[in-house]
Design a protein around this nucleic acid. Structure first.
Lengths: 254, 254
DNA sequence: GATTATTTGTTCGTATGTATT
DNA sequence: CAATACATACGAACAAATAAT
């Protein structure tokens, strides 16, 4: 019942190289149990003869299996099958808050508005905190280069004791990093939610876009070590002005 | 106090090999900014002369940097520095592709359409591959529970040799995981881009939504170990039906 | 737009070193 | 100690992708 076209296994596409053919063949053998966990693979010399390839090719094929976590090789002993299927974990990692938020480029922030507010039910839900709590709110406009049209509009909420950052936001063009540096706040966790919305009248006016037109909405919650929200922001980015990109890769243990 | 680098960063063998010496030298250059992010490294030939080693040694050194995620190499173009440090602070990690894509809930896929196509310039750019390549396209509708309105519309492109999955997509309600299990494809890297768009006429019709209304657009590229795209998908999710959430935390305990 | 030059990718060969049996 | 097996390192040639002319 195997479809005739279903042969490949370790999927190294593009141009089908010799080493990927060898790697696939060995992977199939492992997956089918012809080489069980704990067994040794044939030696490099044997694999050279079996597949009629050079040594580099064999080694490159085995390197694929090693990277996939299926075998381990040691000089003098041989190459041992350690797993029939890779234990996989995918990781996205970033070096700084700025990188996390993808505003390392030359963008600027303009402070439109500020003031203290008491969280109503809706805001409390978004902040994931109790209603009735006081927050300091800033309305910001992010612009890039000489473009008159802003990239986005951001409502930032910080705890009232941090209201002082309002004075430095424009100069530094970033909010949270200032919190870290001025108040020693350490980010422990960041939560993001991305969705599509349509622009409200106020947003449209500030962003020089059409009311009701599509926009990317990004809600971010910044947690400190004690798991409490120290900052929350709601960014609105009209279509075509900003896209959010992430990259996750397979992490290879050991 | 100078932070003691805190990171060995490069996985090196016990013995101090030539290639690891070269790798360290280049790593230091990158970290010191002598090769900035975006710059090209010297060519293999130049590095051979500079370090007085053979080509395999240079290539092995660069392979270390590649595995560390500091550089990317491409034929004809050269080797580009993509990051300056391996000390990563914020990490998001997932255990499976399904978890990555956030469709662990009870959702289903319906196959609307399928067929082989040749990548034109626009599609090639989105796939990040060369134009003129053949791809197998599937148009899918994702629905949840008994809700008649679909969550989203997805165009999936896979390499032609994997066309067989079209037969199992509906039964398993997920595409890439089937590729993994049926063809042994190992995901190495996943790239995502999220943006806001307005619904086209066809999308609006299929999604039972208003034409031109806002939607979340998610482009995903699936890379295998050799950094080539094995699958690409473009998902369209009308406002209010789906939001994308991530959570990143500080990696170092304490 | 086609051609050429440059640069990395793949593949062969060979020799020697190091770890294990 | 000797044999075996992977690790490192040299060289050479051609293919494929990209950039320059």
């Amino acid at each position: 019942m195997n479809p005739p076209d279903s042969a490949p296994s370790l999927a190294l596409p593009g141009r089908d190289t010799r080493y990927s053919q060898v790697a696939r063949a060995l992977f199939d053998d492992i997956r089918a149990g012809r080489y069980a966990v704990g067994d040794r693979l044939p030696t490099e010399a044997e694999l050279q003869r079996r597949f009629d390839v050079g040594r580099h090719t064999v080694r490159e094929a085995i390197r694929q299996l090693r990277n996939a976590g299926l075998v381990t090789a040691r000089a003098g002993r041989g190459t041992t099958v350690t797993a029939a299927t890779g234990t996989r974990r995918y990781v996205q990692s970033m070096n700084s808050v700025a990188e996390l938020l993808q505003f390392t480029r030359a963008t600027r922030l303009a402070l439109l508005d500020r003031g203290e507010i008491i969280a109503d039910a809706a805001l409390a839900r978004e902040i994931k905190g109790p209603p009735g709590q006081a927050w300091f709110r800033m309305a910001l406009l992010r612009t890039a280069g000489g473009d008159p049209k802003p990239i986005g509009h951001i409502n930032v909420y910080v705890r009232p004791e941090f209201r002082g950052i309002a004075d430095e936001v424009e100069a530094h063009s970033i909010v949270f990093s200032r919190l870290e540096q001025r108040y020693g706040v350490q980010l422990f966790e960041l939560e993001q939610e991305l969705s599509a919305v349509r622009l409200s009248a106020l947003e449209a006016k500030r962003l020089l876009a059409a009311r009701g037109s599509p926009a990317l909405r990004i809600v971010r919650r910044y947690f400190s070590a004690d798991r409490r929200v120290v900052q929350m922001s709601v960014g609105i980015y009209p279509e075509g002005r900003f896209s959010y990109a992430t990259r996750m890769h397979l992490s290879v243990p050991g």
